[in-house]
């Protein structure tokens, strides 16, 4: 993931979870962010969908455990999109 994409992703996290100082680490999980609950988890994925122009399945949304997983998922989707 490029640094520009990471910045876009960080911006989503900061806005949605209302944490202006939040730094994205690959091992960041819902436990580390108070407002990252099960309701906001889907919203996070939907914001990412809109920002990066990708589409996730319910399985992908539920299996995403940390920021590293999310970055890998976005990268994989971007590759598939480019190939198509």
């Amino acid at each position: 993931m490029t640094s520009r994409d990471t910045a876009r992703l960080t911006n989503i996290f900061r806005t949605l979870f209302n944490q202006p100082e939040l730094q994205l680490r690959d091992d960041l999980t819902a436990r580390d962010v108070p407002t990252w609950d099960s309701l906001n988890h889907v919203n996070l994925m939907m914001y990412v969908e809109e920002e990066f122009g990708v589409r996730f399945s319910t399985g992908e949304v539920s299996s995403m455990q940390n920021v590293g997983d999310l970055k890998r998922l976005i990268d994989a989707k971007a590759v598939t999109k480019q190939a198509a």
């Binding site: 889907v42 919203n43 939907m46 914001y47 969908e49 996730f56 319910t58 949304v61 539920s62």
Partner: peptide, 16 residues
């Protein structure tokens, strides 16, 4: 989760 995803896609993320 499937329902929330469907609704957010239909209503837009502003109404997430």
């Amino acid at each position: 989760m499937p329902l929330q995803m469907t609704l957010v896609r239909r209503w837009g993320v502003r109404r997430a």
